[in-house]
Simulated scan of single mutants.
Amino acid sequence: MPDLKSPLVSILINNYNYGRFLTAAIDSAIDQTYPHIEIVVVDDGSTDNSHDVIASYGDKILPIIKSNGGQASAFNTGFAASHGEIICFLDADDIFLPHKVAEIVKIFTADVEIGWCFHALNFFGDSSQKFESQHNWSSGKYDLREIIKGGKLRGKMPDINLATSTMCFQRELLAQILPMPEAIRITSDDYIKYLAIGLAPGFVSIAELARQRIHNNNAYTLRTDRDKQKLFARINILTAYWMKSNFSSIVSKFSNNIFAYAMSIYWLNGGIESESQETIDKYLDALTIPEKIEVYARIIFNYMKYRYSS
C-alpha cells in the first residue's frame, strides 16, 4: 500500500548526447532534501560519453540504455521501469533545486484529488541573453477539465514555461496517458501535459523549483527563425493528431484548435513540409463536415491575423 505521508518519488531523466550536462542533472536529483526517491536515467541511444557518465553512478541510479527512439520512447521506457507514486521528469541538460521534490510531495499529499503539478523555473547557461520569468498569478489548484474540453487554455492558468523539467504527476494519472505514441519524437511533453489537464485537477506553483539550461543545442527554446516556426507546426500537428485519436472525448475541440493554429503557421512560413502531409491528411479525413468548416475558418482567421499584424 502506498505511503501517503512519504511516497516514493521517481525522477525520470531522459538523455540523448548530453553527456557534458548529465552529471549536473543526476547530481541535482541525488542532492534532493527529500530522501525517498529513485532516479531512473534513460539513455536514448547516445553516441557521446553519456554511457560512461551513467556507469560512474553505480547503484545510485537505475540506468536504462536503449536504441534511439526519440523523447516519447524515452518517457515510455522510463515510466515503465519506475516504481514511484509520484513521477517528476528532468531533462538531462536541466537541474532540480535541492528542495524541489520536497515541495512537490507537500503539494500532492495536501490534496489527494490533484493529479498533476507544474511549477516555474529559471534559466541559466551559455546564452548571454537575459531571461526573466513573468508571474502575474498566484500558486494554487486548477481544475481546467471543462476549459480544455471547450477548446482553449490561454489565459486560464499562470504564464509559466511548462518545460519537461517542470512536470510532476501522480502515477495513477500518468498511467492513463503513457505509453504515448512514439511518433512524437521531440517536445513530447505537450501531449502529456494537455491530456493531464483534461483528465484531472492539478496544481500550478509559481515557485522556481528547477533551472533550464540554455545552450546552442537546445532543440527549440532559443530558435526564432522560420525553421523554428515549422518545427513548432510539425510538433503541434502530431500532438493534435494523437490527442484526438486517443482521447477524442476529452480534447477533441482543443486538438482542432491546435491543428488549425499549426496549419496557419505552415501557411505563413512557405507551406506544409512533406513529413507532416500524411498526418494532416489523416486528421482532416477524420473530421466531420462541420468540424472541417470550423477548422478551415480558424486557419484562415489565424493566417490573416498574423499575416497583417506586422
Rank of each mutant, 00 (worst) to 15 (best):
I235W: 02
G155I: 13
F203Q: 07
Q129N: 07
E85L: 04
P2K: 12
Q170D: 09
S133D: 01
W116D: 15
L121E: 00
F89D: 01
R213P: 00
I13C: 04
E208Y: 01
D143I: 09
V105D: 05
A219Y: 12
T77G: 10
I86Y: 03
M1D: 11
K253Q: 08
E275W: 06
I148N: 04
N14G: 13
N302G: 03
R234C: 05
V40H: 01
L174K: 09
C88L: 08
R171E: 13
R20E: 08
A74M: 11
A55N: 15
Q129V: 05
A102E: 03
E291K: 01
G70T: 08
V251H: 14
K292M: 12
T23A: 05
L12N: 13
R223T: 10
L144Y: 12
K230P: 03
L121T: 02
N49F: 06
A29Q: 00
Y194A: 05
N302S: 15
L209P: 02
D225C: 01
L12K: 06
L268G: 07
V112A: 05
C117K: 05
A163P: 15
G202R: 13
I114H: 07
S249V: 14
Y194V: 06
E132V: 00
Y220E: 12
G271N: 09
V41H: 00
I114L: 14
K230I: 01
I237D: 01
N257P: 09
I147L: 07
E278S: 06
N269G: 03
S128P: 14
L144E: 06
E85F: 06
K230F: 01
V204N: 12
P290F: 11
F254W: 14
I177K: 08
I61K: 05
F131H: 05
D3A: 11
L195C: 07
G69N: 10
G155Q: 15
L231E: 04
I87D: 06
S6P: 08
I39Q: 00
H51R: 04
Y194D: 10
I87T: 09
R234W: 03
M243K: 01
S56W: 04
P7S: 10
L97M: 07
M1K: 14
F21Y: 09
Y296Q: 04
F169C: 13
K292T: 03
S82Q: 11
L173T: 14
L8H: 06
L12G: 13
G84M: 09
D91F: 02
N17R: 12
W267A: 14
R20P: 08
F169Y: 08
M167T: 06
K106A: 02
I235F: 02
L144Q: 12
M167Q: 08
P201F: 03
R211E: 06
D281R: 09
